[in-house]
Amino acid sequence: MAADFSFNRLPCNERAEVEITIEGHKVIALEGETVAAAVMHSGLRPTRTTAVSGTGRAPYCMMGVCFECLMNIDGKPNTQACMTEVSEGMVITVQQGAREIGGDRL
């Protein structure tokens, strides 16, 4: 993961920590934050590639209206990362193009 894209964390009020996995790397997120925030903090960019042309995209609006933050969250493809809160043990990967369905068989 290119650490040079990581968003910086300011001094925060007390929050429980949550361990999640982003693209195979274990990272610490704060309880109550969104997956998109955790991903930006981790420095991952792009966070998806489009189904149309395969170009890279990353979260744009953070409030659920642009659908640029679609990622694979706990095996669920095309999930809005900015509308999903982190939880312990969550596994997050880049959404590559169109989503898979029906598991690995396809």
Partner: peptide, 22 residues
């Protein structure tokens, strides 16, 4: 392009995660 986002998005990151942009 990845890296372009709205001002509001940056504010949301600030308000809910205490994050500032790279």
């Amino acid at each position: 392009l990845p890296g372009v986002m709205t001002c509001g998005a940056a504010q949301i990151l600030l308000k809910s995660s205490g994050l500032t942009p790279v």
